[in-house]
Amino acid sequence: MTMKFRAFLLVCLSCASLSAFAVTDGVRIKDLGRLSGWRENPLVGYGLVTGLAGTGDSAGNKTTRQSISNMLKQFGVNLPPEDVLSRNTAAVIVKASLPAYAQPGDTIDVTVTSLGDARSLVGGSLLLAPLKGPNDRVYVLAQGDLAVGGYSYDMNGSVVQKNHPTVGTIPGGGVVEVGVGVKVVNERQKLTFVLADPDFTTASRIAAAINQSMGRTVAAPRDAAAVEIDAPAEGGARLVDFVARLERLTVHPDNRARVVINERTGTVVSGGDVQISKVSISHGEMKVSIVTDNSVSQPTFVSDTGRGVRTEVVSNSRIDVAESDNRQIDSTGNTVADLVQSLTRIKTNTRDIISILRAVKAAGALHADLVVQ
């Protein structure tokens, strides 16, 4: 049994063990979704990174030169853009996500990406840059030294590079100026719990678990993606305690069976309890190789070599056909894990397992969604 087979088998068996664990202990409602209104808010801004060791934007980048000229005017320095040398400066886009309930003075991480033709942002420092939301309002001010995690050096046409040196981060580099309020209770005095993976059965079980815990009917599934819950009229701390109690409840989610295949890497991930019908698989392969041998024909015992007598290159080709015996298995188990064990016994590689699973799905014997990445 090769390492690939063992790894794939362990994945399947581990998924089966995790599935059994989930059935026993359940999953917290908190881990199955979120309350409507709870979200992160994307922000974006424009800025300049300075202090680069000649790896910034080239002198031909008009955007950077104009930005430097505009910045210097704020400090009383009037310099035309055409007189600016910007090799130690780079124009960048700054982005961040403002979390729910962020308050003024909180710090968040920001990401800085090169906008021009800079070769590297290593050693650079971001100047004060405002980050705006879709409403064009400034929510965060970003500034600080970049952590790139890579490098790029070149000389005389030779380049040495690690990772992507034109993208960096500033941990805690953004200061929240305007907080974000979250409204989780709607005008009908209800909370809406949104499932991360919509499912009618799971929504029904969540509502039942909440009603059983509260001792009365306070929750009802609106559809496969949401459960509506009556919020306490008092609000405030009473609402916080109520939501905390809901989040600790556990249910048994009922998700659709899936088999995920990544053909680029040859990876197959499946739950060990994914059902299959009884199926017979015949697997074999034929290898055809064409080999050409070039040899030189050298004339010998010829006294006069100037009358059309010369060395000749002769090509001899042969075709070899090697056809392995067809290997047939009958999967008597009812899960993908059983099928994998059968395929492992006949030493099937991962690429062939992918092809076999697709064929089993096409035959209607695999009772799961086949996700090909």
Rank of each mutant, 00 (worst) to 15 (best):
N349S: 10
S331N: 09
S270D: 01
N255P: 13
N334T: 14
T192R: 15
Q161D: 06
A208Q: 15
D304W: 05
A102Y: 04
R318W: 09
L127T: 06
L127K: 03
D230P: 01
G173L: 08
G47T: 09
S97R: 08
K361Y: 05
A53I: 04
A226Y: 01
D369W: 07
R238W: 01
R310V: 06
G76T: 08
G215M: 12
G174H: 05
N163D: 15
R119F: 12
L52T: 09
D330I: 11
G168E: 06
S317D: 05
A237N: 14
K183Y: 03
I170E: 05
L370C: 10
K347D: 11
I206W: 07
L126N: 07
G133A: 15
A368D: 13
D241G: 07
G272K: 06
E247W: 11
S289K: 08
N255V: 06
G149T: 05
L85N: 14
V251Q: 14
A257H: 04
P171V: 03
K73A: 14
L128R: 14
G149D: 13
D369H: 08
S158F: 08
G272R: 05
D57L: 07
T89L: 01
V175S: 03
D25W: 12
S152V: 09
I68Q: 04
G45Q: 02
E263V: 10
E323S: 15
T169W: 02
N163S: 14
A203E: 08
K278D: 07
I354W: 02
A118I: 05
T217S: 14
V140H: 02
S213W: 12
A53E: 13
V268L: 09
N294V: 10
L339P: 02
M286N: 09
V148Q: 04
S19W: 06
T169E: 06
A20G: 09
R216F: 06
M1T: 12
D293E: 14
H164P: 00
D223T: 10
V279K: 09
A365Q: 08
T166P: 00
V291N: 09
A226F: 01
I329L: 15
C15M: 09
T2C: 05
D199V: 03
L98E: 06
D304Q: 11
E82M: 03
A142W: 06
L249T: 04
V182E: 12
P104C: 09
